[in-house]
Write a protein that binds this DNA or RNA. Sequence first.
DNA 1: CCCATTCTGGTTTTT
DNA 2: CCAGAATGGG
Length: 729
Amino acid sequence: MELINGLNDRQREAVLYGEGPLLILAGAGSGKTRVLTHRIAYLIKERGVFPGNILAITFTNKAANEMKERIDHLLDGNIDELWMGTFHSACVRILRRNIDRIGYDRAFSIYDRDDQITLVKECIKDLNLNKDMFKERSILSVIGSLKDRMVDPDTYINEHYNEYYYRNVGEVYALYEKKLKANNALDFDDLILKTIELFNKDGDVLDYYQRKFKYVFVDEFQDTNKSQYELVRLITGRYKNICVVGDPDQSIYKFRGADISNILNFEKDFEDATTILLEQNYRSTKNILEVANQVIKNNYGRKEKDLWTDNEKGDRVVVESLLDEREEANFVANKIEQLLVEGYKPKDFAILYRTNAQSRTFEEVFMRRQIPYKIVGGLRFYDRKEIKDIVAYLNLIQNPADDLSLKRIVNVPKRGIGNATLEKVEAYANQKGESIYKALLELDEIPNLSTRAKNNLKSFLDMINSFMAMSEVMGLREFLEEVINKTGYVKELEQEDSIESQTRLDNIREFLSVAVDFEVNNPNGTLEDFLANISLLSDVDKTEDVDNAVTLLTVHSAKGLEFPVVFIVGMEEGLFPISRALDDEEELEEERRLCYVAITRAERLLFITHAKLRTIYGNINYTLPSRFLDEMPKEYIKSSEDEKKESFNNKGLIQVIDYTSERESSKALRVNNQDLDIGDKVNHKKWGVGTIVQIKERDGDKELVIAFDKVGLKRLLLSIAPIEILKGE
DNA sequence: CCCATTCTGGTTTTT
DNA sequence: CCAGAATGGG
């Protein structure tokens, strides 16, 4: 049978496995996608399973599309009925059909993180809490983790009744939930939780889906949280044909509630579960894999597993030490240019970093050197102001209860409806217990409004009403154009006529083409579907499909991807592992798993870099190489610093800086500063002896960065600093 | 009500 | 350093 050709014994066993719970522990690069696609194809083709009886959960929509395509290739039959997508998109699909059974309108809005923050902010204000003490971000992270663990507000408040802070966090949580409901909105967590609630409260609906989904698959199972696990348990309650695939060593979403114990407990929770281990790696060279294995070994209490490969040994992993982030980016660019000459293509390269902020230097350098690149995440298209504004219009039109969206755009573009006016309307709505939109329908009843305000509100209302009517009859693109024109949004930007407004117009045009794409791919798609679709896209999904470009992305976003050549940058203590993890053993282990994920993305070549100086918040920091570098076995590593060191007479910091000082800025400084140079020692009145590590021109003065022996790095101006230069080598 | 300016404080990772 | 919030003048 062609479906098992070329598979190894373990893989074949997984593909051909019969009924009942199955746990596939799949190491990095062990061909789990292959196993999943082949198993699904096998069920359909050889076992006669109807595609509509299969639900497959993937981590991103992109992964879902790719898998679906691969299955399509393996079969001749039609697989349109196969449900494949993320937890969130599957839940939206279920809720759009049936959420009315638990008291929501089926036109509910989906709130993203920014919406959540706005809502929490409102709650803090409404409850008269001190906003310095109650920070919306930290409250939101508590709420998030409570939702992940399915703890409701009342339970939490009772548990913390005697703690002022946490009790009030609970109160915010309660009000937040109330507001979501009033706006007929769900946040990301709710998509899962409300589906569970629906299943628990309505036996018919549960029964329907239990019968429908005879076979359920969950990929990246190590990163599911408690509620997702519960959802899987409910859906598979009838047939128990649940196949999960995961790797505990690649669990990197603990901060989002991911619970490794889901994978560890699987065999307990599902009786007679079979476990299959995939340990042969097909992705990386021996050198790369060995480095990964040695690093992850340092995690305590993990289930020992040794990934092996038949692939060639390959080049040693290169570890490179650079002066600062600029040199780091230039080193990477140099390597890429060099490898491009050797026949690699831009799309073969990925730059992996721990935090999004690190992408900037690479962007600058790549732009200057004309290396084609694309960035995953970071400044996101859908997070741009103009896109969020348009989406808010659409949300309101689709779900008039959505006060949050209404408030966002009621005065964008300016229509003379300011805060004071809106507050009066809102007060009226609150008192009547209805939405702002509804209140506007009773405009004449609202007290204390000036005629002017009333007129402005009236024309706003008329506009929204006409949009609502149009949305019923128009195609998506046509409708969208109507909205951006009739609102005056485009007009305002055109009048502004700045570079910035031009970019915004471009973005709006881009958004229109997204809508056209959606229309083509989903001929029956509604406005609701379109909105749900764009709000559930992951960063990876959203990244533009540039033909041939270097990929810049966080290690988190790189999960599940692979590249011929990988650069892991910023391998420094405090950055990777991140500072917050340094004194917490559990978080440190998660960082180490993250490092493991990063290393195992590489197929042929792996470069790891760290800088000695890194600018954070505009401050220059001294950094040390990451502890993970020490965990990598020397025999698989080559460090060009080792080679260079021999030709320099290295006496510490001064010499280290000397040999990298070919960079342009230092060269220039050498000419201009006969008296002062990087590496010179100085004596400061208060801070004592230090070494100059950087000199910058600043308004005719010189700004010095000095590494003091006692107090570390300081930045000061030459003209006013109480220092003397210590001469004489 | 609108705009410009000052200030604050914030970076982990994201469906 | 930078973006968004808060503040105050027009």
